[in-house]
Amino acid sequence: MLQYAAIVLIMLGLYGLLTQRNIIKIIISLNILEIGVNLFIVSVGFVTDGIAPIFTSVNNSSNLLFVDPLPQALVLTAIVIGVGTTALGLALAKNIYQKYGTFDINEMGEE
C-alpha cells in the first residue's frame, strides 16, 4: 500500500514541477518528488515482521528475518544528494531574487 502512496507523492511532485511558476514552489515540488522516490525505494525492501538490519544483543544472529538493508543504504545516498541539490537551488533562487526582485518566472521577463 505504501508503494502506491509513494507513487502518488511522485506524481504530486511532478504536477507541481509542471504547473508552478514560483521558484521556491518548484524547489518544494522537487523535494516532494524526491521524498516519494525515496519512500518507494525503501518500501521495496520491507519484509513483514522483519527487524532492522542491525545486530544487537537481542537480535544477535544472521539467521533472523531482517529487512533488506541495500535499499536503505541507497536512500541514505539519495537523501544526502537531495540536500546538496536543494541547497544549490535555493542559492540560485536567492541570487535571482536579488537581481529581479521576484520569485515568479512570468514576471521576470516583463520589466
Binding site: 505504501l2 525492501g45 520491507f46 519484509v47 538490519p53 531482517f66 533488506d68 541495500l70
Partner: peptide, 15 residues
C-alpha cells in the same frame, strides 16, 4: 509490500 524474500537477493550476502 512485505512479501519480499530477502534470501534470494544480494542483500542476504551482505547480512
Amino acid at each position: 509490500m512485505g512479501d519480499v524474500d530477502v534470501t534470494t537477493r544480494v542483500s542476504q550476502k551482505y547480512i
